[in-house]
Amino acid sequence: MKSDKRDHFDRHNLTEDDLLLYAVTDQHWTGKQTLHEQLEDALKGGATFVQIREKHMGDAEFLEEAKDFKKLCAQYHVPFVVNDNVQVGIDCDADGVHVGQSDMEADDVRKLIGPDKILGVSAETVEEAVLAEKRGADYLGVGAVFPTSSKDDAEDVSYDTLKAICEAVHIPVIAIGGITRDNVTQLSGSGICGIAVISAIFGQKEILKGTEDLKRQTLKMLGR
């Protein structure tokens, strides 16, 4: 579990350390374990932030899953956000929401979730990043930095663009898309504060050990 033992997360106490290892759930990877069991292994292994991203669930099932994950993340003192579905994020009292460029505009999301909830926004260009910050984003997810099968419509973002985005904004930036324990160190010096992954955690045979290993490699990438 995290050492600072915070019981509540909002945009005012979100730190870069919270965004170090951002785990994105995907039921595609469930095998013998349930999503709940997989997530708990990831939290035990050192995931510092969790986003529920379940594109193929109905709203009712998605809400129940989100409520369960919110409770579990609170036990491990880790922030929890809902991807895309702002209403589910509000209904389960998530710590915040994350939206993409094709979803609701960031400033409209901010009006719905209020002034204190965490708002993450996906970006692929410097222009998108600067606008997202202006419209109330608290952090950016930038990618895909490597080829990925998790998001078919994700454009490749070069290392130079990633670095330029980090230099252009004043909010934390995490890299997303195709990141593994073997390529994460290629992102050294870009200015990011962490990484967001799906299969690099949930696609591992031993999620707890895989998460621990990925966290070590991420800290190495950051020179820590």
Results as ranks from 00 to 15, higher is better:
residue 199 S to L: 01
residue 20 L to V: 14
residue 18 D to M: 09
residue 76 Y to R: 09
residue 23 A to V: 10
residue 52 I to R: 13
residue 101 Q to M: 14
residue 82 V to H: 01
residue 25 T to A: 05
residue 112 L to M: 11
residue 170 H to Y: 04
residue 23 A to P: 13
residue 25 T to K: 09
residue 69 F to E: 06
residue 22 Y to P: 07
residue 221 M to I: 06
residue 58 G to A: 09
residue 158 S to T: 14
residue 91 D to S: 15
residue 72 L to A: 05
residue 210 G to Q: 10
residue 65 E to I: 10
residue 131 L to Q: 12
residue 55 K to T: 14
residue 192 I to V: 13
residue 99 V to R: 10
residue 130 V to C: 07
residue 200 A to V: 08
residue 41 D to F: 10
residue 128 E to M: 08
residue 204 Q to K: 12
residue 136 G to Q: 07
residue 25 T to P: 08
residue 23 A to D: 11
residue 134 K to I: 06
residue 153 D to P: 00
residue 76 Y to P: 03
residue 49 F to C: 10
residue 155 E to V: 09
residue 160 D to R: 02
residue 135 R to Q: 13
residue 163 K to G: 04
residue 135 R to K: 13
residue 48 T to D: 12
residue 76 Y to W: 06
residue 156 D to M: 10
residue 205 K to D: 13
residue 20 L to Y: 10
residue 156 D to L: 14
residue 76 Y to M: 05
residue 43 L to D: 12
residue 41 D to G: 00
residue 8 H to M: 11
residue 78 V to H: 04
residue 46 G to D: 02
residue 159 Y to A: 15
residue 7 D to E: 15
residue 116 D to V: 01
residue 213 D to T: 12
residue 194 G to S: 14
residue 9 F to I: 05
residue 58 G to E: 14
residue 21 L to G: 12
residue 67 K to P: 01
residue 10 D to T: 10
residue 63 L to N: 03
residue 136 G to K: 08
residue 164 A to T: 09
residue 104 M to T: 14
residue 22 Y to W: 14
residue 196 A to P: 03
residue 79 P to K: 02
residue 118 I to P: 05
residue 116 D to E: 09
residue 48 T to F: 13
residue 64 E to N: 13
residue 112 L to F: 00
residue 177 G to P: 03
residue 121 V to L: 05
residue 162 L to M: 14
residue 187 L to I: 07
residue 50 V to F: 15
residue 192 I to D: 05
residue 18 D to L: 14
residue 29 W to F: 15
residue 65 E to G: 00
residue 43 L to C: 05
residue 65 E to F: 01
residue 100 G to Y: 04
residue 32 K to Y: 08
residue 136 G to V: 02
residue 156 D to I: 07
residue 214 L to G: 11
residue 117 K to V: 00
residue 54 E to K: 04
residue 116 D to C: 01
residue 170 H to G: 13
residue 66 A to F: 01
residue 17 D to H: 07
residue 2 K to F: 06
residue 28 H to E: 13
residue 94 A to K: 12
residue 148 T to G: 09
residue 61 E to D: 15
residue 75 Q to W: 02
residue 201 I to Y: 05
residue 12 H to N: 05
residue 183 N to V: 12
residue 158 S to P: 06
residue 111 K to S: 12
residue 193 C to P: 08
residue 118 I to K: 01
residue 36 H to N: 06
residue 84 D to S: 00
residue 115 P to D: 15
residue 36 H to Y: 13
residue 90 I to T: 02
residue 157 V to C: 09
residue 179 I to E: 07
residue 1 M to Q: 08
residue 17 D to S: 13
residue 48 T to E: 09
residue 9 F to C: 12
residue 212 E to Y: 01
residue 121 V to K: 14
residue 205 K to F: 03
residue 205 K to R: 11
residue 31 G to P: 00
residue 195 I to N: 01
residue 127 E to F: 02
residue 101 Q to H: 11
residue 96 G to R: 08
residue 185 T to Y: 03
residue 46 G to C: 08
residue 70 K to Y: 09
residue 122 S to E: 04
residue 120 G to Q: 11
